[in-house]
């Protein structure tokens, strides 16, 4: 079984004004390619820290985190930037779309970061927006879209450059139940194509059924990894 993410003995501590807080303690976690892994647990248990390390935007203190066999800590900051730009897509709780750009321009950002011509990138973005049901709204600013529509734009932005891993932080928590389910259906159907892997941090028990694996965390430890959904 090929692994998208392999974490071994990951440890991360924070210095909060002289007090050392352990956010991750000896984390061991494997995420196979083509699977959807959910990280669940109470607030402050280390989910966000773990997803940040996996996404390569935070360095661990010790241990190894490999993405597609590449140890991110061995990369220079410039190489890490390029790696993230090419291989990782992000979906955020608060959507984090750029308010001055329209839907298509927001979706086109990862392609532009990867060096594509702006005009071509926007054209590809419009095509992808059609696939997520927003073909007619590509000129709309984020403020002109509903929460569900904004999250669909954010998902399109995470997918546009065809990354191998998508990390999602509470993708449904700002949405009502029905919209949240629609977003998860979209993620599951579109995002998991081509052996792509998904890591989703969530509190939302209603969406556990979409996971292939659910890793429960508490106090910086992974206490349980289940293959079957916790609730269906």
């Amino acid at each position: 079984m090929s692994l998208a993410v392999r974490c071994q003995n990951l440890t991360k501590t924070y210095d909060t004004g002289g007090q050392i807080v352990t956010a991750l303690s000896n984390i061991n976690l494997d995420i196979p390619m083509g699977e959807l892994m959910m990280l669940v647990g109470p607030s402050g248990c280390g989910k966000t820290t773990l997803i940040s390390v996996i996404a390569g935007i935070l360095d661990q203190d010790s241990g190894i985190c490999e993405l597609f066999g590449e140890n991110l800590q061995r990369l220079s900051s410039k190489e890490k930037l390029k790696f993230r730009a090419k291989h990782i897509g992000f979906v955020f709780q608060a959507f984090n779309l750029l308010p001055a750009l329209n839907a298509a321009e927001n979706v086109a950002i990862p392609l532009i970061i990867n060096g594509m011509n702006r005009h071509l990138a926007v054209r590809k973005a419009i095509e992808l927006l059609s696939q997520v049901g927003l073909g007619e709204r590509w000129t709309s600013l984020p403020s002109q879209l509903s929460g569900g529509q904004q999250q669909r734009v954010a998902i399109a932005r995470a997918l546009i450059h065809n990354p191998r891993l998508i990390v999602c932080d509470e993708p449904t928590s700002a949405l009502d139940h029905e919209t949240g389910l629609n977003v998860m259906h979209l993620l599951k159907s579109v995002a998991l194509q081509n052996d792509r892997s998904l890591v989703i941090v969530t509190h939302d028990a209603r969406i556990f059924e979409f996971a292939d694996q659910v890793a429960e965390m508490d106090d910086g430890h992974i206490i349980n990894v289940k293959n079957a959904p916790l609730r269906t």
Partner: peptide, 8 residues
């Protein structure tokens, strides 16, 4: 967000 997505 831009930094996370790989903007230098």
């Amino acid at each position: 967000v831009l930094k996370a997505m790989g903007t230098s």
